[in-house]
């Protein structure tokens, strides 16, 4: 299912956070939302979560206007891995993943055999099945993100929304999570801080700056040295990883005194 925003504007307390934002994330692809702090990435995602209602414009999952379908239906259309990894909760991993079935369960309906099978499969796909009986708080940051990813998978939604999923993870856990997300093959929209991750793992990126879309295309086309200078104020360049042959981004501050003479 495609994910689209059309002319979305959001103003909070007189400050314009998003200004006429439109983008389309293609079916089955990983689309990155990138931009500096305060560029509106999270706010744009929160419109899709039904937490912030745009004053103008619409957000759609496939044919469905997210704000015009019932809340429960929205929970069947898109799953969310957000930044709130609540530290003080006592739930076991399996209980948390089972919450992914909430949008599919009717009032007073109990967890069915089918629900349990879906939860099992979600745990396996997120490679966290070994921890199903553990309490969430006892897991590492990377393991917690995989639990929240498993919960999202248990929702069986065609679209996955991620808000900086690699935040606070060590580099090994970051790459492992991103590889996993790619393998899932779902339509994915992820706000990403790390531009090199966006370069390596996204099929397309949407570059936001001051609440507007600056560019939207494949990462190599969008992340030019000129744009990195204009939007992020850094000197960026593309290089090739000597072991993998893949393109990567490297950065330098505008004027660095530690530079070698060339």
């Amino acid at each position: 299912m495609r994910v689209t925003a059309t002319g979305v504007s959001v103003t909070i307390d007189g400050t314009t956070i998003l200004d006429d934002v439109s983008f389309t994330a293609a079916d089955g692809r990983v689309t990155g939302l990138i931009g500096p702090n305060g560029s509106g990435k999270s706010t744009l995602l929160r419109c899709f979560y039904r937490i912030i209602r745009p004053q103008q414009g619409t957000v759609h999952i496939g044919e469905h206007d997210v704000w015009r379908v019932p809340a429960r239906r929205a929970g069947q259309l898109r799953a969310v891995v957000a930044q709130d990894q609540e530290l003080d909760n006592e739930y076991a991993v399996r209980d948390i993943v089972a919450m992914g079935r909430i949008p599919h369960q009717r009032l007073l309906e109990r967890e069915s055999t089918a629900d349990r099978a879906i939860v099992d499969e979600a745990l396996t796909r997120a490679r966290i099945e070994w921890a199903e009986g553990r309490r969430f708080v006892t897991l590492s940051g990377g393991e917690r993100q995989r639990v929240l990813l498993a919960r999202a998978l248990a929702q069986n939604a065609p679209v996955l929304l991620l808000d900086e999923p690699t935040n606070h993870l060590d580099i090994g856990a970051q790459l492992e999570l991103l590889e996993l997300i790619r393998e899932l093959g779902l339509t994915t929209v992820a706000a990403l801080h790390d531009l090199d991750h966006a370069m390596s793992y996204c099929d397309a990126v949407v570059l936001l700056h001051h609440g507007r879309v600056v560019a939207a295309d494949d990462p190599v086309t969008v992340l030019t040295p000129q744009r990195l200078a204009d939007v992020f104020g850094v000197r960026g360049a593309t290089t090739t990883h000597p072991l993998t042959g893949q393109p990567h981004l490297v950065f330098a501050a505008p004027r660095s005194e530690r530079e070698l003479p060339r």
């Binding site: 937490i51 809340a71 069947q76 969310v80 919450m99 929702q155 929304l161």
Partner: peptide, 9 residues
Amino acid sequence: ETSAAGLGI
């Protein structure tokens, strides 16, 4: 809040 909203609540 975000988790709950994401779960269709």
